[in-house]
Amino acid sequence: MSLDSPLAAGSGPEVPPSSTVQAAPPGVIALSLAFAKMSLAGFGGVLPFARRAIVDEHRWMTADEFNETFALCHFLPGPNIVNLSFVFGARFRGFIGGLAAFAGLVGPPMILVSVLAVLYMHYGEIPALRRALSGISGAAIGLLVATVFRMLMPLLKRRDLSALLLMVAVFVAIGPARLPLQMVLLVAAPVSLAIVFLKRRVLP
């Protein structure tokens, strides 16, 4: 046995970094509880909390897998995070898993918001409350920007120039150019698929 081998050095088999180690698939109850926790913690939007729970805390997906799944949900009609809950649950536990994740996501906030709506109807004009809500909106924007940056990191690490150029083009088209979202998606989706197809043909 060579002295350069891991066993000879006494180090044992190489263990991948914790960020790349995926945990066992969650069960139906775990899915429901996890998404309920995300929804109740998700002040200003659930996406930052969903990514942290799925990728960093539970390691049910890698960063790339989360980006790909969220991209699919972004192209579907309806709220992105609701689509993500069902697609994510169905991926691991089929239709029942999708329903469990969906119920966990929308159930607790629906009850909470119904109670808050009644309270807001009676006390919504209080100046202190309105100032507090304005402060919360700033924190929500900060959470969203931080999540976008973390989702961008896998592309930067891979140095995927075509994906970065496509991302910038879509941002410019929807943002400064103010083109209709549907038109941009109808162009961007086929272009992204064509890029992947050409990459696999040229670099199998």
Rank of each mutant, 00 (worst) to 15 (best):
L3M: 12
D4T: 12
D4I: 14
S5P: 03
P16K: 08
P16C: 07
S19T: 07
V21T: 09
I29D: 15
A36V: 00
G45Q: 06
V46M: 09
L47D: 05
D56T: 07
H58D: 06
H58W: 13
W60I: 06
F66C: 00
E68N: 12
T69W: 02
L72N: 14
G78I: 11
P79I: 06
N80A: 15
N83Y: 04
F88W: 15
G89C: 09
R91M: 14
R91L: 13
R93L: 02
G97A: 03
G98Q: 15
A103S: 13
G104K: 10
M110E: 01
M110T: 12
V113H: 05
L119M: 10
Y123W: 05
G124S: 02
I126C: 02
A128M: 13
R130S: 01
R131A: 14
A132Q: 07
L133R: 08
G135T: 02
I136C: 11
V145Y: 01
V145K: 02
M151Y: 00
K157A: 10
K157C: 03
L161N: 02
A163F: 05
L165F: 09
L166G: 09
V168H: 03
I174D: 10
I174S: 13
G175F: 15
P176G: 11
R178D: 04
V184R: 06
A189F: 14
P190H: 13
S192P: 06
A194N: 14
V196S: 11
